[in-house]
């Protein structure tokens, strides 16, 4: 078994009386893409933030690369793409990339090369010198992804990376993710696009703060006796609701 990039054990989190995560565990080894799927409000983003150490948890432990989070040195090795496009709109794409690159300790030739590569992956090379105010939603999404890829991190955490991106480019991005995975990097992706879920190595279904099911897409389909991930999800959801009623 490869080293665990992410090791989350029995994490629980509540905001006031609203329980967002109930004892969720998650393991991600290097060289794998783990898809976190679930409806909005399921607790995906909270779980992702807990992994990054940006959300304190009420119970359980979160470790990245064997280190308990939060830890600033480990941040250097994570590429994070938030759900909202956190970009400086008055700056150009290149200036945004340069700024985050500098924060990540890249400089000089190395930074220039990294910017060129990341921009090429998300197909923004031609638009690098335009201000973000002139960018479309999809372009902003792609730039956010480029920032996450910039410093060639060992672990990528992507929160809804392909929202608003057209199918062709989506394929291109997934091809890049596959390639990174093959290089031995670990990738945690949240999505609610079921078609994307099929492309992950492992899946975790999360609903109402509870991990409903976990496994490879094929195992999940087989175990639930259905032919698509969407059906797996619906079936697992119905079982969860039935379980609640019985109590």
């Amino acid at each position: 078994m490869a080293t665990l990039m992410i090791d989350v054990r029995d994490v629980a989190k509540r905001f006031g009386t609203n329980v967002v995560l109930k004892r969720v565990s998650l393991q991600l080894p290097a060289g794998k893409i783990l898809g976190l799927i679930g409806p909005s409000g399921a607790g995906k983003t909270t779980l992702v933030k807990a992994v990054l150490g940006m959300e304190s948890v009420d119970a359980g432990t979160t470790q990245v690369l064997g280190t308990t989070m939060p830890n600033r040195a480990i941040m250097q090795r994570i590429g994070y793409m938030a759900q909202s496009d956190a970009l400086y709109t008055r700056l150009t794409a290149r200036e945004n990339l340069r700024f985050f690159g500098e924060l990540l300790g890249l400089r000089g030739q190395h930074l220039t090369a990294a910017i060129a590569h990341a921009a090429q992956v998300v197909n923004l090379t031609a638009d690098l010198d335009r201000r973000i105010t002139a960018y479309s939603g999809g372009m902003k999404r792609r730039l956010s992804l480029a920032i996450a890829l910039l410093h060639d991190p060992d672990l990528l955490i992507l929160d809804e990376p392909t929202v608003g991106i057209d199918p062709e480019l989506r394929q291109q991005i997934w091809a890049e993710l596959d390639q990174l995975r093959d290089q031995g990097k670990a990738i945690l992706v949240t999505t609610h696009v079921m078609g994307e879920a099929e492309r992950c190595d492992d899946l975790m279904l999360i609903r109402g703060g509870v991990a409903l099911a976990q496994g490879t897409p094929a195992t999940l389909k087989h175990d639930h006796g259905v032919s698509t991930i969407e059906q797996v999800f619906l079936k697992a959801g119905r079982m969860q609701d039935a379980d609640h009623r019985d109590r």
């Binding site: 496009d85 956190a86 924060l103």
Partner: peptide, 14 residues
Amino acid sequence: TTGTLTRLLATPIR
């Protein structure tokens, strides 16, 4: 409000 602060804090910055 735009989330850039969260994004900043996801880097090793102090």
